[in-house]
Design a binder for these strands. Structure first.
Length: 210
DNA sequence: CTCCCGATAT
DNA sequence: ATATCAGGAG
């Protein structure tokens, strides 16, 4: 992937339009962000934020969560979808973190991705917020926007992340995902993208294809 | 690759 | 009715 004017235009656009984009999952600490991020798979942040206050009031840390009844967890998180898998994931995660890491998540990519329910995307979210970003979060929005703009040709999030890493300065890795996600939610939407309002359209391969 | 899955917008 | 939403495990 070669550096093109579109990258500079995109970075400039994101800073102008989304200067203070941040994580939309409400959380008070590393524990809450990790659980919220797992629950956010194939579900809106808004829905996650609706159910987490009750969840975190009853289970404020990995210690209490590790002793939870799985059927009770399923009941609380049901509106987020995939609730059988997610309940199993967060309960298993809590048990492992309590047994092996004294109830505190280790902030290392190699360890995080081996923990139950945590893949590269969730690990990148955690490290971007509470550690040192070792990459760029590629979720459904970042993948879609990157493809439309021609920043990558791949579907595989790992390959998309490699392309983005080669194009984007390291000091922006943490924030740019939030900026792209805001852009993806408001303008470059999956269903009905607002190309007529988009300042990137003259640089966009998806728009040219329309 | 398939499966998991409820809520919302179109 | 169907596509989509801060994915991960088997």
């Amino acid at each position: 992937m070669e550096k093109t004017p579109i990258v500079n235009k995109f970075l400039e656009f994101l800073d102008g339009r989304f200067p203070d984009a941040k994580c939309e999952l409400t959380h008070k600490n590393l524990y809450e962000l990790a659980i919220s991020t797992i629950l956010s798979a194939q579900c809106t942040d808004e829905m996650v934020n609706k159910i987490t206050p009750s969840l975190f009031q009853q289970y404020p840390d990995f210690f209490s969560l590790s002793n939870a009844d799985i059927e009770h967890l399923k009941q609380i998180i049901k509106p987020t979808g995939f609730y059988n898998n997610k309940a199993k994931s967060i309960l298993s995660l809590a048990k492992v973190v309590v047994e092996n890491y004294k109830g505190e998540l280790p902030l290392e990519m190699e360890i995080l991705v081996k923990l139950p329910g945590i893949g590269r995307k969730t690990a990148n979210v955690i490290l971007s917020e509470y550690g040192t970003p070792s990459g760029i979060v590629v979720d459904t929005h970042v993948a879609r926007v990157s493809k439309r703009l021609g920043l990558t040709t791949y579907d595989d999030p790992i390959k998309i992340e490699k392309d983005l890493i080669s194009l984007i300065p390291e000091d922006r890795w943490g924030k740019i995902s939030h900026q792209i996600i805001h852009f993806g939610r408001q303008i470059c939407k999956a269903r009905k993208p607002e190309c007529s309002n988009c300042e990137m359209r003259d640089f966009c391969s998806y728009y040219k294809q329309q």
